[in-house]
Design a protein around this nucleic acid. Structure first.
Lengths: 251, 251
DNA sequence: ATCGGTCGATGATCTGAATCAAGGCCGGTG
DNA sequence: CACCGGCCTTGATTCAGATCATCGACCGAT
């Protein structure tokens, strides 16, 4: 880590302080009602959940919470994209995840949150006080079981990411990343083979354990190899998805 | 990845096939009763748990389960050390965790286990059928909550490991690793500043995303710097733990 | 005691990705 | 519409760690 790099890295922490608008939530009308942990609840459960949910808006670049903050809230992303960041004291950053509509936010803390959360785009969130949610579990065990399942899924995803960070080449990392986004897009009802990248290349670099230059070069190379095709500034097509999958060395 | 490396890597998969001895379990007499998810249960709960627990033994190098196996069992490690492995098709390996007495095994699968588990030393395990354990949850919510907490802890640990793999230098990785083991040793009632390493350097390399040569060289360097001191073939002292902590860039 | 295998240490060399450096593109703004 | 700043691209060079190659210590089996 050079001096210059440290300066640049410190500059990463120039986000707008936390601030957000709020409103009561109507879960019945929620756009992601079928996607996340509230999926498949019966009417009464939805109504109860609605009672403790608070709808929030965060503008692009706003901090939702910091690493180490008391972890007394959990969230559901209903619109936009969020990044989860960890920082070393000297400013190196690791992004441990990107959240998209339907994703759950706030698990994985012991004392405080294990990571900070920042809005990549304008973001709509549905917020729950953790203690109220846990109270709800007493009569709605289904909800608790679902949350446990989400924690399990995240754990499996984290393990995959460790394999990527520990053992994959830059090209394999990019291929894996694009395929993962494509799969999530499909789960959310989008078409396969098209991915939308709301984040900038610096975010991708910090997620994949690379530098922006390597990300840019590798994307250029994948384009030259016709494995990906950029349609707009934030959208890519994956025309030869099987080859990409092979490149990613999917275990 | 060179051809030679692939050959070597494939050789990693020369473990003895799964086989183990079993016996009924008496949780009252368990040596780690205060350490793990059964800690602090009342007599009746311990008795119930005892009823569905099966004590197992795995010899050194034996496979406990493979990545992708149906995840219908969970375990508690009571003696010995276990490694969790993920492999790429061409044989590169990432170890996603080491388990020691008191640690829980088997979370983090979607369909099957997200990783394989192998005995590093001779291992004693306490095995539970997942469905029976879940049945138990209905009347023992405490147990379920504790398991959820374990999943949360593992998630936080996984995030820390991502930061390590994505952004730390070799020296920082080793320092972090040794400190983590030291902390776990203390939790298990051992003294701080002394760590026991049951695994070989190849395992450490595959856990930290390095090669065996780099691990060996870095350990040599830490010894020269008098930050660690090797007492026996598997035991180290950390005489200047604060300096080591600084080196590890603890966030 | 002798072998054979595993494990760890260390030197020499190579290389993938980082770093350093310079421009280019584009969208927003005065 | 010209300027500015954020973001991306690409070339040149460096470097941390990988790879390749030995060697020695240890240990269990014969």
């Amino acid at each position: 880590m050079t001096t210059k790099a440290v300066e640049l890295a410190k500059a990463k922490v120039k986000l707008t302080p936390r601030r957000a608008s709020c409103a009561a939530q109507d879960c019945h009308a929620c756009e992601i009602r079928d996607l996340t942990f509230c999926a498949g609840l019966d009417e009464s459960e939805i109504a109860t959940l609605s009672g403790i949910a608070l709808r929030m808006h965060f503008a692009k670049r706003r901090v939702i919470f910091h690493e180490g903050d008391a972890a007394d809230m959990v969230y559901n992303v209903t619109q936009g994209a969020v990044r989860l960041c960890k920082l070393t004291p000297d400013g190196r950053r690791q992004i441990t995840g990107f959240l998209l509509p339907g994703d759950f936010l706030g698990l994985g803390g012991r004392q405080g949150y294990a990571y900070g959360a920042e809005a990549i785009t304008d973001v709509e969130l549905c917020r729950f006080r953790r203690d109220k949610l846990e109270k709800l579990f007493e009569n709605h065990r289904q909800l608790e079981r679902r949350l446990f399942k989400i924690a399990n899924d995240e754990l499996a995803i984290a393990q995959d990411q460790m394999l990527l960070l520990g053992r994959k080449t830059a090209k394999e990392r990019l291929a894996t990343f694009l395929l993962n986004l494509s799969e999530r897009e499909e789960l959310r009802g989008g078409q396969g083979g098209v991915v939308y990248l709301p984040m900038v290349q610096e975010d991708i670099a910090d997620y994949l354990g690379l530098t922006i230059e390597t990300v840019s070069r590798t994307i250029s190379q994948l384009k030259r190899d016709r494995l990906i095709h950029q349609t707009t500034s934030h959208e890519f097509e994956l025309p030869r998805i099987e080859e990409l999958r092979h490149l990613a060395e999917q275990t």
